[in-house]
Design a protein around this nucleic acid. Sequence first.
DNA 1: GCGCTCACG
DNA 2: ACGTACGTGAGCGCG
Length: 877
Amino acid sequence: MEKLVLIDGHSILNRAFYGVPGLTNSEGLHTNAVYGFLNILFKLLEEEKPGYLAVAFDLKAPTFRHTMYDAYKGTRKPMPEELHEQVPLMKEVLTAMGIPIFTREGYEADDILGTVAKKAQAAGMEVTVVSGDRDLLQLSDVHIKISIPKTSRGTTEVHTYYPEDVKREYQVTPEQFIDVKALMGDTSDNIPGVPSIGEKTATNLILQFGSVNGVYEHLSEVKPPRAKKSLEEHRDLAELSYKLAKICIDAPVEFSPEDARIGDLYTKEAYEYMSRLEFKSLLARFGDHVKKEAAATLDFHAVTDLAVAEALFQKAMGSERTGAVLLAEGPEISGAALCLDGQNAYLIQKEGFLTGEYLAGKMTELYRTGHVWTLGLKSQLPFLDLGYGDTVYDAAVAAYLLNPLKDTYDYDDLARDHLGLTAPSRADLLKKLTYAEAMDQEPEAFLSFAGFLGHCAYQSGGILMEKLEAEGMKDLYLEIELPLIYALYHMEEEGIAVKREELSAYGEKLKQQITVLEQEIWDMTGSQFNINSPKQLGEVLFEKMGLKGGKKTKTGYSTAADVLEKLAPDYPVVQKILDYRTYAKLNSTYAEGLGNFIGPDGRIHSRFNQTITATGRISSTEPNLQNIPIRMELGRAIRKVFVPRDGFIFLDADYSQIELRVLAHMSGDSRLIEAYRSAQDIHAITASQVFHIPLDQVTPLKRRNAKAVNFGIVYGISAFGLSEDLSISRKEALEYINQYFETYPGVKTFLDGLVADAREKGFVSTMFGRRRPVPELGSANFMQRSFGERVAMNSPIQGTAADIIKIAMIRVDRRLREEGLESRLILQVHDELLVETAVREKAQVERILSEEMSRAAALKVPLEIDMHDGKNWFEAK
DNA sequence: GCGCTCACG
DNA sequence: ACGTACGTGAGCGCG
């Protein structure tokens, strides 16, 4: 049967607007509603696979309902400006995709949908009507399905209703849905109901008498008396409401299916729109036939001849700017991409005399000129001979600074976001082939890939530095982020030694415990189930055993630790489950997980990523060495397997309360500055000052509370968060916060200023000029907006701390090398540096760490360091 | 591929 | 009323 999908345009756009986080493109256009709409649309197309599609919109003009009922005017809540401006945008995108838009003066979208749906059904079509508005349920019919997408927590669930579903949920038929609404009214549509009749009474009356008319025919039988009286008095109102609530199914709308037949949605025009709106995930849906066009104007050349390559390198060395990328994966070089002008790009293939060593040597020479723009320098460094003295511009890192909220900074991202160019992605061109495979099997595609890569690197050089300078981030880029690439590369290369046998022995011990606990839990619950499955665990605990827990997640019961901890005192099995979780986590993630990463050199070489976090921190992957257990004894013991090589020890230095010190500095609050200048124990002095007690009389509880408030301040304070953390009432939490702000008024002014500033400018900045955009502040969604406020308060603090330790890392790493030491920086954990230190260099390294970390930034409070040494990471903390 | 849970700062 | 502390990454279960 022919399938038709009809969409309630305003309603879905509205849903998307409130459900999707605030988004703006580089032009500052709000795009979240359009984005959400399109996601719902594509999901529908995939699931329903319709042959026909149309979207209905309301018009501004008054409708027949206004004529009927004066108060209907102006009933709609005014649309927020951020949403309003997206309506024309949405229509243009739909038009670009060739999707018909239905409107009719004097009628609402509902009426058009109703009329078209019924006509299409009569013509033998299978119809789906999509809306966020439950009023549409009255249209549900044998061949008309009402589909209501519900966006919560970022994902979209769709509820669908045929007449039997309406009945199941509301007891009444789709037609009677109108009758119920007529009686109860609807405040959001400003449809007046009969006074003192609510949903319950209305439903009961309609179930009993069939319709509004039926109710009035049997008015004498109506109970309770109050309802009867009200119905008597307001008959005109009930009848009017019925007319207002009833969707018109014979509006003057012509519908012939051909108007709505789905053609090629993936048009060039639509693609351009998605590009402009920066909907990357949607762009991926478009076939590559659209993207090939960009290539038409560029000339890509494959170079396989030594003399030609020589000449090209020669020319590159002398040119003003070169785009260059060494194409290397794993241990293998496949070639080099070069670009010296905006027209031509070259792939120098590894072939014949053009060996890997040759290319690496030439590229080193080229990079040393200091005019090279590349992409992803860190991954090329294993093949190049470069160091702190060499400035190589990495366009990906520049693009990260310009917008740290993106997931990727590949050449196609740069092309779209900065170069006004549409380039096919690596996945488009090479599918899942490696470089070596692609060069062999798909030489054309590989040439194209290398061409775009080189071209984008070159073109980035023409624009990104200006952008960085315009945004005040040139120094940050040149002095911190670029040198940092070397520090990170050095840490990755160096790795950290791990005692394989001790790690697996630790794992064996855990596994024994896991087996014992598993059996005990099975015995105590009376069922053999997978304890690792939150679903099964929830069912066993909360259904089979009847523990009181209540639903918390959208998929079922929450079995998170904080929920289980509340139950543990009363149910011994719950404590066993918590223990099981601890052992299972330590075993799978750490004992076994880390074991898989020990290389042939007996060391783990984690990757340190520079372009991931929104705040400027680095991240660590494969494996993550920034979350090795420390808070609990059992987990902390893992650190004993991380060891220095023979003749070396570990020196571990961490900043003491760096974020709070940054807060003191940035806020300029004189009392806080004075407090941190003098105090050893920051949380204790906070307690002393906030709660007005002498420092030596601060109890552990008071200190704990003050510490929680300090954390809260750094996270972007909220009474809710603090109350959860301390298990106190919101009111008490608010009192703590107010007391804190009374004590340190400068902090309050500072944080308020950050939010106001972010609202005005759209971003916040660190001391060193690093920016974080805060688009959520423009959201109409309360939750999103509140999140934006917390982000505005937290990011400058967390980000400044990140800037500071980056500076320290660079200087420590540089000095260790330049002073000819054998000691090496091997890890960074946000406020901590770990140096594998030659025993005889210990004093010198201590001095370097202490000096470079303390003076990385000149704050109004001292930057204090705690330092320890040890024969393993456990001892050195 | 996503949700849940949990490890870290 | 809304439903939350900020920033990450990994393993597991499940559809």
